[in-house]
Design a protein around this nucleic acid. Structure first.
Lengths: 252, 252
DNA sequence: CCTGAAATCAACAAAAATCAACAAAAACAT
DNA sequence: ATGTTTTTGTTGATTTTTGTTGATTTCAGG
């Protein structure tokens, strides 16, 4: 059994399909290697192969449409996978909204007996289906942008439940100002989650370190020393002062 | 099976229809290639083709993972589609939990400016993504069985919002006792929705009229004259006394 | 019923993906 | 260290897919 098998299965099943070349690039190996390690997988019927690509044989229905829209799928899947090294069965976790969290929720279906509190209807729906989980949806009024709630009751519920980890994200990482998002309500929610958790996990893929068209301006709450930063490429020199006190996990 | 199949199915089902040329441009391949790879898809009946374009033959998008579990997919899709004849843009609607409602939510994505209140995280998540909708998730604690909430706050929210239609379902239709479900909390929720709506729509596929292994015993609240019954086969003689005062819609 | 525009089909050449075999590199044990 | 095993990348022959061309069919409007 090759060391890539788990990753490949994960990626194929999450994405629904991927070309051999894309996968080769994603894992930084040659296309021939992909073909080789994939062969036993398709012989065992775990995934299907067509000329040029691999397709999941799990029902084609599975991948959530949110994920399809999103950029940097592979990076986010990698980050979601590395999250599984941190979160164990039975952990309690608060999860914010956003596509990174959507992938995280997908991955966390592998875990059992989680206590989850989230303001994202998508995350809540995904994880509530797992037997043994205890899922709380925080908030009532959902915004259509991402199906998340930021009303007063959302905050009340977040503040009522103390958890082991808060899983947060950001829209942009700025060299000077740190982790930024677009809206004040997101900052407030992140603050509430952070204050009611033992540790915070900030998940940002490498694209968040690059300049963007629509620039966010609001600063996420300060992380504590020992909090985690999950990303998919090594931190560049000019950002390292932001992450020096953090446990940086680089997914690959 | 071509590597484009998943994408094509996704796009066609998502959009409802698309021309061959548009699809060719979308995937940056030639129109000829589209025609070639589409041929097996329409032969297998997965999508339909007309001169110049492809059209989805399913409800607007692939049913969710819940549906794999669920029996009678086709019946439920048919019922969901006929629901679209009742519900118009801008309507306000309360939706209960269950697989019938999951399909209904999928179908209702065609409508805009809906006000939706539901105790199902799946329904909330699905409909909150539609731009223009106003979606409220009722309840906090989700049960893993179906991602629905029946806690006190769920009832408070249902009772706070008055809607045009309550969309309810049942597990079994009994010749003598009428519409039955398994749990008291479901009856309570149905009652709350019914009391805070102008009209009630009861959606039950024909299998609910047949005897079942796991027999439910609790009676749903009484429907009002003029309420709707949506089903997929004509009502048998012995059930007609239950439906005589109702508007019966038989989907096909 | 006829006609012109658009869509489809059939066939062939070009491009891309696959496979098999070998050599280099990495991992392993002795 | 040394030799062995395993894995990986490369090369070139083979197969599959794709785009193009031109002939044929379908559709809408007179």
């Amino acid at each position: 059994m090759s060391k890539y098998e788990i990753q490949i299965r994960e990626i194929v099943n999450m994405q629904g399909s991927i070309t051999v070349l894309e996968l080769a690039r994603a894992l930084s190996v040659s296309d021939q290697t992909i073909r080789r390690v994939v062969r036993p997988l398709v012989e065992r019927g775990e995934i299907a192969k067509v000329h040029g690509a691999l397709v999941s044989n799990r029902s084609p229905i599975d991948p959530p449409f949110m994920s399809r829209m999103s950029q940097n799928k592979l990076a986010k899947i990698a980050i979601a996978r590395s999250l599984l090294d941190l979160i164990k069965d039975g952990d309690r976790i608060a999860i914010d909204t956003g596509s990174t969290s959507a992938f995280a929720a997908q991955a966390l279906r592998e875990r059992r007996y989680l206590t989850v509190v989230t303001n994202s209807a998508f995350v809540a729906s995904t994880l509530s289906m797992v037997p043994g989980n205890n899922v709380s949806m925080a908030g009532t009024q959902l915004r259509h942008h991402d199906g998340a709630s930021f009303d007063r009751s959302a905050f009340e519920i977040i503040e009522r439940i103390h958890v082991d980890y808060a899983l947060l994200s950001a829209s942009l990482v700025d060299e000077r100002k740190g982790f930024l998002v677009h809206e004040q309500c997101e900052v407030d929610m992140a603050t509430a989650m952070l204050e009611n958790s033992s540790k915070t996990i900030m998940a940002v893929d490498h694209s968040k370190f690059l300049p963007q068209n629509r620039k966010p301006s609001l600063k996420q709450p300060e992380l504590k020393p020992g909090d985690y930063l999950l990303t998919d490429k090594p931190i560049l020199r000019q950002f390292q002062h932001l992450t020096s006190s953090l446990d940086v996990v680089v997914a690959e």
